[in-house]
């Protein structure tokens, strides 16, 4: 049994400890907001926070997170009110929507490290793939989320 904290609650996974965290979340914990996109850590659709850092859950065996703290999109905020989620909603970012939870988790962690990223910072540090190509809005939403996080402006 691998035990860890999942969205603030104790969680135990009884299966094969080589199982990537992604499939533990999706198949066992029923948290399907974390997505499968490539299985090799390339696309970022499966991004979650482990002890506050963005990690790609598809290549992270659950054994590696024993005793650690995992936050998924479902645990990021109670009702979609995290600044990154609000920015994503204000900017109408999604097209198909499939990659957006991973995008949001990656950006939320980036803004913790780097509260006011420049465009160059974003180019270097944000590597999630959006196959629909909603990148212009993702960039705008990152800047907007940065503003919202810092409380600079909360209106449109």
């Amino acid at each position: 049994m691998v035990r860890f904290t999942l969205n603030g609650e104790d969680y135990g996974f009884p299966g094969d400890s080589d199982t990537p965290l992604l499939w533990v979340l999706r198949d066992s914990a029923g948290l399907t907001g974390t997505k499968y996109g490539c299985g090799t850590g390339l696309c970022g659709a499966c991004t979650v926070h482990v002890d506050g850092e963005a990690r790609r859950a598809c290549i992270l065996p659950v054994s590696a997170i024993e005793g650690r703290t995992v936050t998924t999109i479902e645990g990021l905020s109670p009702n979609g009110s995290h600044p990154v989620q609000r920015a994503w909603q204000e900017e109408n970012v999604p097209q198909c929507g499939y990659c957006q939870t991973g995008q949001i988790m990656a950006v939320a962690a980036m803004l913790e490290r780097l509260p006011s990223p420049s465009d160059d910072d974003i180019d270097r540090q944000h590597t999630n793939i959006c196959r629909c190509g909603a990148y212009s809005r993702i960039r705008r939403a990152i800047h907007r989320a940065s503003e919202l996080s810092r409380g600079e402006s909360t209106d449109d």
Binding site: G33, Q89, N92, P94, G97
Partner: peptide
């Protein structure tokens, strides 16, 4: 806004792969 904007940004949007 897209009718599924909220679920798509909170992880509650159901895609086919999420079905159980």
């Amino acid at each position: 806004a897209d009718v599924d904007l909220n679920p798509m940004t909170t992880g509650h949007q159901q895609f086919s792969l999420d079905l159980k």
